[in-house]
Amino acid sequence: MKEILGQVTNTPLFGVIISLVAFEIGMFIFKKTKLAIFNPLLIATIIVMGFLHFTGVEVKNYMLGANFVVFFLAPATVVLAVPLFQKIDLLKKYFIPIIGGGIIGAITAIVSVVIIGKLLGIDHNLLLSFMPKSITTPIGIEVSRMLGGIPSITVFAIIITGITGNVAAPFIYSVFRVKHPVAKGLGLGISSHAVGTSRAIEMGEIEGAMSALSIVIAGILTLALAPIVKMVL
């Protein structure tokens, strides 16, 4: 039995199929519950981790196929430019607030991790892994590698950050009376990347477009700022 399992899992197709099946299960649970906490990405991650643990399949075997999925993350992120292009006039109109808000948001995302991490005494490598938590996964993985962090930890932090923003955004906007669609979109995109953008799109076209834009801004600024923060640490 182990020999058969070893032959099956030692092919790239295995990782792709497991990833797709796990995500489809996550989508099914999410659609049935309608609860943001049951985010398909989180459910899929738990399923894959559980499967590998209980079957004893090595991670390197899974990654033979999973790397194909990772490869397509970057092109998928580019698609976010579509809603931005549709609202290009808004970008021109609110250029200064958008760029200013993006810079402040990106700095806050990094500095807050450093401060909280230092207070809690988090290991240096873990701290570096958490720093790109607020940017989209493809960029976050590369930033983590560049800093010397642990990409798998970074991905987990990105997922948790996105789900938290997705769930908490409506409540936060209500408490602080944030009503402007541009502000809502920027806040979600800067803090919660693509998962937050999915919530922004539900709020409206303007929110979705601004959130997509802020993902790009956050990614670029984090790439520039993270190495500087690392040198200070």
Rank of each mutant, 00 (worst) to 15 (best):
T77D: 02
I98E: 08
F130A: 09
R145F: 05
K93M: 04
T161N: 12
A81P: 10
F72R: 03
G102M: 11
V78P: 10
I96P: 03
I98H: 06
P138E: 00
I122M: 12
V82I: 13
I150P: 06
I88F: 15
V79M: 11
L128Q: 03
K60P: 01
F72V: 11
H124G: 01
V114D: 05
K87P: 11
I139L: 13
I159W: 05
S152L: 04
T77Y: 06
T136N: 08
V155E: 07
V155I: 15
V78G: 13
K92F: 06
A81D: 13
G100E: 02
G149K: 09
I150G: 04
V79T: 14
T154E: 07
L73Q: 01
G102H: 07
I103T: 13
I110F: 04
K87M: 14
L119A: 14
V143I: 15
L120S: 09
V59F: 15
K118A: 07
A81T: 11
I99S: 03
V155P: 09
I88G: 13
I103M: 12
S144T: 05
I141A: 00
V69N: 01
I104H: 00
V78D: 09
A109V: 05
S134P: 00
N67T: 12
L126E: 00
D89Q: 14
I139F: 10
L128V: 07
H124V: 13
I99D: 06
I122P: 02
G148E: 07
G117I: 00
P97G: 02
A109W: 02
K60D: 10
A81C: 12
V111Q: 06
V59R: 15
T154Q: 06
E58N: 13
V143A: 03
L128A: 02
G121M: 02
P75W: 03
G148K: 07
F156M: 14
M63N: 10
L127V: 00
G162V: 08
G162M: 11
S134H: 02
L128N: 04
I158C: 14
N61D: 11
L119Q: 12
A76V: 05
G140Y: 02
I116W: 08
A81K: 05
I141P: 00
M131P: 01
I107D: 01
E58Q: 15
S129Q: 05
G100I: 03
A74D: 07
N125V: 14
P75T: 09
K60E: 09
G148T: 10
I150Q: 05
F85P: 13
G162R: 12
M131N: 01
V111H: 04
Y62F: 10
P83V: 11
L91V: 15
G140C: 05
S129R: 04
T77R: 07
E58F: 04
L64D: 01
V111D: 06
M146E: 12
T164H: 09
P83F: 09
P132D: 03
V114S: 02
Y62E: 01
K87S: 15
I104M: 14
G148I: 11
V79D: 08
I99G: 05
Q86D: 14
T108A: 14
